[in-house]
Amino acid sequence: MAYSDKVLDHYQNPRNVGSLDKNAPDVGTGVVGAPECGDVMKLQIKVGDDGRILDAKFKTYGCGSAIASSSLATEWLKGTTVDAAAQIKNTQIVEELSLPPVKVHCSVLAEDAIKAAIDDWRKKKAAAQAAGKPAAQGAQP
C-alpha cells in the first residue's frame, strides 16, 4: 500500500504521543475501536477554564493511517476550543492525509475519539456542577 508523505511523517514522527491523568477533572478521555477490528484509539484533552484545549495526547493501536489520523487530530485539538473541536469532521482528516477509501474508517475513528473525549470532559464537568462544587475549570459559555 502506498502511503502519502503526510501519513508517513505522522507515523514516523507521531505528535503528542502519551497520556494525561484520566482522573483529573479537566481531562476528557475517549477510547474507541476494538482490538479484534485492528484499531483502538485513546485520545485525551486537557481543557482550560476558558474552554480552550490546553493539551492533547493520544495512543493508538492500529495501522499507519490510524496512527496518523490520531496524531493529526491532537495537532488540530491543541489550542482550539472544545466547541470548535466538536466540529472536526473525518472528511477533513481524509483530505489532509490523502487517505485512500479503505482507510476512511481510520478517520472516522479519530472523529469518534475526539467526540468521546469531549463527552467525557462534559460529563465530568456536569457531574462536578451537580455535586455543587464549582467546576474546576470554571464556567463554560
Partner: peptide, 11 residues
C-alpha cells in the same frame, strides 16, 4: 500482541 500488524510491517 498490543501492536497492529500493518503498522509493524510499515515500521
Amino acid at each position: 500482541p498490543y501492536v497492529e500488524g500493518e503498522s509493524l510491517i510499515m515500521g
